[in-house]
Amino acid sequence: MRAVPLVSVVVPAYNAERTLKASVDSVLAQDFRDFEIIVVNDGSSDATKAILEAYDSQIQVIDQNNRGAPAARNAGVSAASGKYVAFLDSDDLWSPDKLTQSVRALEANPSASLVFTDCCGLRADGTSSTFYSYQGAPSLKEMLDNGFEIVPSAVTMRRDVFEACGGFSDRFAPIYFEDLWLWFLARELGEFEYIPKELTTIRLRDKRLADSYFINGRTYIEFLRQRYGHRARGAIRQTCKHLAGVSVHEALRRMDAGDSWGAAGWWIYAIRLRPTLIAEWGSRVFRPRNLRRLVRTVSPSSKVS
């Protein structure tokens, strides 16, 4: 009879043929051995399935129609048997001691709902640098005042906490902001532990954002308002600032492509998110040179994941 593992590693994968093997191999290279790997093939149409088949019994594979990363992670946790659940996106990597240090932190603090680490950012040219570094584990008030972002690949959490939170909300399908909302719910159920080491590497990439990024951003703001009211005004303000910055970047892209009307639409959306832009730039905002100056004011600083 197979022993129940202490940790279940859940990897959602969608058309991940270029990066999936390196991600799975970084789990298999852990110096902590009491784990299972569950990869959810989320309707991939490339060679993802063939790559997974090569691992044979080393991993458990769940095949499903494409439903997005939140649903894929939820499916993985539903099949998990571990006390702890560790998430790893199919383009991210772990240091060999990621699970050892994460489990040690959770075992030492039974009241902690999850543990997270610093992150290194890996660029396409192979260079890397610190991407997420924190001052410590936040209180719920600090999260409500300032917002708080942890990428799933940096998190290991108690499975019973994940289930008590209802998992990743399907309101955020297919992807974006589902993780930020889950961390708020998890923080209500226990404190966070923080490991000030870059045990997680996230791949940095340039890509156009889907419409769901902005739809889910508004949903996230709506959830914060409904659950926390005025206490969440700081987190809401930070989210609006970020979305405004992303909108200005899209306006610039449209202008470079000669789509003036599209650029104007994205600029209006940015103003709706951050009305102070009008006072800051007035009637000059549609002049390209000023719009390019503006981007430095509202430029988003977070990784798009």
Rank of each mutant, 00 (worst) to 15 (best):
S113P: 10
P110F: 06
G121N: 12
A137Q: 12
K141Y: 08
P138I: 03
C120H: 00
F116M: 04
Y134N: 03
P110N: 09
R123A: 08
F131W: 06
G136K: 06
T117K: 01
A112N: 05
S133G: 05
G121Q: 10
L140F: 03
L114D: 05
E107F: 07
S139E: 09
R123P: 05
T130W: 02
F116R: 02
P138A: 06
L122H: 10
V115R: 00
A124E: 15
M143H: 12
C120W: 03
L122Y: 08
K141W: 09
S113K: 07
Q135L: 06
A112M: 08
D118G: 07
E142F: 03
Y132S: 03
G126Y: 08
E107P: 07
L114T: 03
Q135M: 04
R123M: 11
G136T: 10
D118I: 13
S133L: 00
D125V: 07
Y132M: 11
G126E: 06
Y132T: 01
A124F: 07
N109D: 15
G136H: 09
S133F: 02
S139Y: 04
S111N: 09
S113Q: 10
N109Y: 07
P110R: 13
N109I: 12
C119D: 15
A124S: 13
G136C: 07
E107W: 08
Q135T: 02
D118S: 10
L122F: 07
T127P: 04
Y134Q: 00
G121W: 09
A137L: 08
A137I: 09
N109G: 11
A137E: 04
T117D: 01
N109C: 12
G136V: 09
T127W: 07
P138R: 00
A108T: 15
L114F: 15
A124T: 14
T117G: 01
Q135E: 10
N109L: 12
S139A: 07
S128H: 13
A108Q: 15
L140A: 03
L106N: 14
S133V: 01
Y132V: 01
L106G: 05
R123G: 02
E142Q: 11
L106V: 12
L122R: 12
L114G: 03
A112R: 00
P138K: 04
Q135N: 03
D118F: 09
V115E: 00
P110G: 10
A105G: 10
D125C: 05
L122Q: 14
P138W: 04
T127K: 12
E142G: 08
L122D: 12
S113Y: 04
S129H: 07
S111D: 06
D118V: 13
